[in-house]
């Protein structure tokens, strides 16, 4: 029988954190820097998420876009698409928000040591991957090539222009960007993100691929990767669902037998292949 005397957890009470910086990235995306009470470190892993809470507006799962290697403050990139995120966009430096988490498995960068890493980022999928990109850049000597592919719908939706400049200028980072629809000033690649994949020269056995993007993107990216003969077991995806509780109870994020908030959001591709409802 269950031992009810063991310690229990108060699962739904957020910690009240402070917004220390707000940066407008695009028309619909802002980046927030957050300080936990007592400037406590969040102790997150790249790829994990938090439940952000604003009283009266509910909660929403938001992936952490900063690397744990960069000090106790952390960053969230938020697209205004719902009750909570719309409200969050109205908040400014000094505002308080509730935080629960970090939740989810996140990436295990230790397992990628010595490997080349290919990041395939679609749209706001760059946010969770930036956490891992920054992590690998901060421990640059631990990894082989770092290749970042980034696709957005149009140039006005490009996130993190400052970071992108840095990535473009670094000799030890290979960066390519494409937009679905170009503007008049745009001189770069035009086309969906999969157009960037065939031209890559990869040591397929030694390359880890991490893919994050909108639901429709996965199938096409996976097809392209297959075309490059990347073994399935080298591919990791992060899946999006509506994680309401973050602690494996409420059922909203369930994909077949897995809870995204517990076993994900990062999944090894061979596992995703067993999940009919995943992509």
């Amino acid at each position: 029988m269950e031992n009810f005397a063991l310690p229990t957890e108060d699962l739904y009470s957020p910690e009240i954190a402070t917004i220390t910086r707000v940066e407008t990235l695009t028309e619909s995306e802002k980046r927030f820097e957050i300080r936990m009470p007592g400037e406590k470190a969040l102790n997150h892993k790249p790829g994990q998420f938090v439940e952000v809470s604003i009283f009266g507006f509910g909660e929403a799962p938001i992936s952490i876009c900063s690397s744990p290697t960069r000090g106790p403050l952390f960053e969230l990139t938020v697209r205004a698409t719902g009750r909570l995120t719309d409200k969050m966009h109205l908040l400014s430096e000094g505002s308080q928000i509730g935080i629960r988490g970090p939740f989810g498995n996140g990436f295990d960068p230790g397992a990628f040591k010595g490997k080349d890493i290919l990041f395939v980022c679609g749209g706001i999928g760059l946010a969770p991957l930036k956490s891992l990109i920054d992590y690998t850049l901060d421990r640059r000597e631990d990894f082989g090539r770092i290749i970042i592919l980034y696709g957005t719908r149009n140039p006005s939706e490009i996130l993190f222009p400052e970071e992108i400049k840095t990535w473009q200028s670094r000799k030890d980072v290979e960066f390519a960007i494409t937009v679905d629809q170009a503007s008049e000033e745009w001189q770069g690649n035009v086309g969906v993100i999969t157009t960037l994949i065939p031209g890559l020269e990869l040591d397929v056995k030694n390359t880890i691929v991490t893919v994050v993007g909108p639901p429709v993107m996965y199938k096409f990216v996976l097809m392209s990767l297959k075309g490059k003969r990347i073994p399935d077991e080298n591919i990791y995806l992060s899946l999006e669902r509506r994680m309401k509780c973050g602690v494996g109870k409420c059922g909203h994020c369930q994909i077949n037998d897995t809870y995204v908030c517990q076993d994900g959001p990062v999944y090894h591709y061979p596992r995703v292949k067993q999940l009919e409802e995943a992509i």
Partner: peptide
Amino acid sequence: LKRLDYSFTQGHRESNYISRRK
């Protein structure tokens, strides 16, 4: 209840449920 006990004590042990159940 044995099934619910499992669901609310696996992984995170939810205090709300366990307090009522104890």
